[in-house]
């Protein structure tokens, strides 16, 4: 039971962590909570399902899984990134210097637009993701661990490691850190702030795309409002870890997933969210800047 709940929690936690990374990256760079991050993940799920439908139409879907799976990922990531660029250009850039709450409402607006336009375009029923990938399961001490869970956890870890290396070793990663710390100084180095912000949105959208595919693989279905709950959870996770802090987002996501898993297993599935939120509040009272957040002096 324990192992089972940990694995279930870890799977969900990894998905939260991926979305939370988007929140934290965007917050780090422009001090904005982008509430449309969960919807970005929903869009990813829809694109993935669209491709599987298209592939199966031509009978290519189950031909070669090693080929189709990466194809789904590449196209979904590209699609979400394009949407991310569009959102940044049309809605975020104009309001970058607005009061913080105006900016927040804008992102909520985007999230409502995305949800409802997908509902209008594709209907409000569940879209099925064909269960062709990773159907089998392992059994370890009474715990059933599906290959899909292993895949999700594994891929999440790989994505996070790649992101970590990218942020710390690449020129773009360095520039992102620089812009996030001090825009004026970054500008004085000759960095084009707008282009760095655009790239940050691309990376955040990529993370959301990956999480979207995972969500629809895990639950087998997608719906226009599927991004909402994970979005809120991931936001909570990012705050829990200390918003703007990349390891914090991962820690917060994983922690939240595991708490949920354990609460669902041992206390009550109905009250699992109650317990995670109570824990969130308690942690914030003792660590007002989140687990790994630092107190930034306000000069």
């Amino acid at each position: 039971m324990f192992t089972q709940q940990i694995i279930n929690g870890l799977t969900l936690g990894c998905i939260y962590a991926l979305i939370a990374l988007g929140y934290t990256l965007i917050f780090g760079i422009i001090r904005l909570i982008n509430f449309a991050q969960g919807e970005m993940s929903m869009v990813g799920a829809y694109i993935a399902i669209g491709i599987t439908i298209l592939l199966s139409k031509y009978g290519l879907l189950s031909e070669n899984l090693l080929l189709t799976l990466p194809l789904i990922f590449v196209i979904t990531i590209t699609g979400c990134s394009l949407l991310g660029i569009l959102v940044e250009l049309v809605a975020i850039r104009p309001i970058r210097n607005s009061p913080a709450l105006d900016a927040l409402i804008t992102t909520l607006g985007i999230s409502i637009i995305l949800q409802n336009s997908f509902m209008l375009l594709f209907g409000s029923n569940n879209k099925v993701f064909p269960s062709i990938f990773f159907q089998d399961s392992l059994f370890i001490r009474n715990a059933q661990i599906s290959y899909l869970q292993i895949f999700i956890i594994g891929l999440s870890i790989v994505s996070m490691i790649i992101l970590h290396i990218f942020i710390n070793k690449s020129k773009l990663g360095r520039s992102m850190k620089a812009v996030s710390e001090d825009k004026v100084l970054a500008n004085l180095m000759g960095i084009n702030i707008n282009s760095i912000i655009r790239n940050t949105f691309i990376i955040a959208s990529t993370m959301a795309a990956i999480s979207g595919i995972m969500l629809c693989m895990y639950y087998g279905v997608a719906r226009y409002d599927m991004g909402f709950i994970p979005g809120i959870k991931a936001f909570t996770a990012a705050i829990l870890g200390g918003i703007g802090n990349i390891p914090g987002a991962v820690l917060g996501g994983v922690l939240l997933g595991i708490i949920e898993g354990l609460c669902a297993g041992y206390i009550s599935a109905d009250y699992k969210d109650v317990f995670s939120f109570i824990l969130l509040i308690i942690i914030l009272i003792f660590k007002p800047q989140g687990l790994l957040g630092e107190k930034v002096s306000q000069e």
């Binding site: 020129k171 710390e181 001090d182 970054a186 004085l188 960095i191």
Partner: peptide, 24 residues
């Protein structure tokens, strides 16, 4: 090139990364 008054380096970047930012 301008070197500003107070915040003249990136405190959360390594020294070498700071220099590389200078060569952006």
């Amino acid at each position: 090139r301008q070197i500003p008054e107070r915040k003249k380096i990136f405190r959360y970047l390594k020294v070498e990364d700071n220099l590389l930012m200078g060569a952006y």
